[in-house]
């Protein structure tokens, strides 16, 4: 195959777009705005989490915000990270006041493998789920072939946040 001429062209093309690109798809503020357009305030919450009781890794400390409209809690917002295949996926989860998922956003994805968890179709499966649902891969959340590890770990992460909401935050509304 006469493809020798393709090489320099390819290399040239790669070099001209040789700009380091951030892998951030959304900032926390953007995700908050998207999930709660009319929220008055995002109040950071510090929670001492008993990780063993939640089956979470030691030192797990997601960022938590209580979303307030006037004096009412209108929902909760989390930022957390899980390992995809071998690198971190940073994601945000929004719950309404009753603990149902209203949005799951991938904020940063660093690997090329398993990046399909960003697909809206996949993330939309989480809509409306609460701690009462299994939120488990291959049960109520379908897998993406070829991105199994990322799908599984992200699903586990969301499950953990729902547990956190149910056991720690729900009581404080």
């Amino acid at each position: 195959m006469q493809v020798r001429w393709l090489l320099p062209i390819g290399i040239g093309a790669a070099a001209t777009v040789q700009v380091a690109h951030a892998v951030q798809y959304m900032t926390v503020a953007q995700a908050q705005q998207a999930a709660f357009a009319h929220a008055a305030r995002f109040v950071p919450i510090a929670a001492d989490i008993d990780t063993t009781a939640l089956g979470a890794p030691a030192g797990w400390k997601p960022l938590i915000w209580r979303v307030q409209n006037a004096s009412e809690t209108s929902g909760w917002f989390f930022e957390d990270a899980v390992i995809g295949k071998s690198e971190l996926i940073t994601y945000a989860l929004a719950l309404d006041a009753s603990g149902r998922i209203t949005a799951l956003e991938v904020l940063e994805y660093r690997e090329s493998h398993g990046g399909e968890v960003r697909l809206a179709g996949w993330r939309n499966q989480f809509q409306g789920k609460s701690v009462a649902d299994p939120v488990a891969l291959d049960r109520d959340i379908r897998n993406i072939s070829g991105a199994t590890l990322s799908c599984r770990h992200l699903t586990e992460g969301v499950h953990r946040l729902l547990q956190l909401y149910a056991h720690v935050l729900a009581a404080r509304r």
Partner: peptide, 13 residues
Amino acid sequence: PRPGSVATSVSDA
């Protein structure tokens, strides 16, 4: 699936 007490303390501050 719901262990009894998970948090030891929670605060806004």
